[in-house]
Amino acid sequence: MALLDIAGLTVSIDGAAVLGPLSFSMEPGTSLGLVGESGCGKSMTALSIMGLLPERARLAGSIRFDGTELAGLDDRAHARLRGRRMAMIFQEPMTALNPVRTIGDQIAEGLLLHGLGGGDVSGRVADIMARVGLPPARFPQALYPHQLSGGQRQRVMIAIALAMQPALLIADEPTTALDVTVQLDILGLIRDIARENAMALLLITHDLGVVAAMCERTMVMYAGRSVESGPTRAVLGSPAHPYTRGLLDALPTGDRIGRPLRVIPGSVPRAGDRVDACAFAPRCAIVGPVCRERTPGFTDLASGQTVACHFADGAGGTGGVGRTGGMNGRTG
């Protein structure tokens, strides 16, 4: 049974659609990367699962996690799952950590809250800290977040998440705020910890190199929807959606010094500007009349991806036959 099964999820804020409809599922112990630019809905997806959407947000559709329906779940029931069964690592560890509490307290908090500490909470915290690369000899539990570097703070965040041995670990741009030379250490740590503990990893990033290194499957999002999903090898190696191709082409690579990069013209649509058409049509290189009239359905390709493009199969205008609104991004 899938650990996480999202079907027809939509989120709107003050009447403006910011996400969806979005459908995907994850098996236990698998890894999925959500890739896209600012405003594509990737963070909203994470917050929907965690039950941390802003007060004004309205959620519809279904999020089944571990056999429980999360849509419409009351806050207390959601809080019992949060931390215990699902945990999240945020982009900016300085704002996500409490500045006036010691790191030992913050790692222990979940254990105490969910009654998992057993007799020796402090010993358990020390073990976890050693595992994330904060050995007790150099990093006493009495340290405060401001005494640590950005990378060390992110290790504390990982320790907090790891303490509960959750079934699902969500990491939202976990290395974007860190220096590049620290990035690999933190990514490697997240990957190893997810593997060792058979956690499913949902990794949110704008960086195609990060999903390439970390995730078996990738889902590319644009304007609140999935445009392409499948095995990372296929999505990055033979991208089928013009947006995915555009993102890959827009990366500056050293062998094209001084020559123009291929660009995606225009900019991402603002939330609420969503229309009943392909949201990428205004920026698309292979746009046709049908793209401005109908939202594309999903087409499964032999290479393994599921693509939301009218021209996915090369024919044009027929994409999505019988698949509209269907499952995409099934992992495992």
């Binding site: 590049v180 030379t181 990035q183 690999l184 990514l187 490697g188 990957r191 960086d207 195609l208 190199g209 990060v210 390439a212 290194a213 970390m214 990372t232 090898r233 990055l236 190696g237 890959l248 990366l251």
Partner: peptide, 15 residues
């Protein structure tokens, strides 16, 4: 060394 290319095999090897 810290630059991860958008190529799963190369990126994983680097990691």
């Amino acid at each position: 060394d810290a630059v991860l290319p958008p190529d799963p095999q190369a990126a994983r090897e680097k990691l």
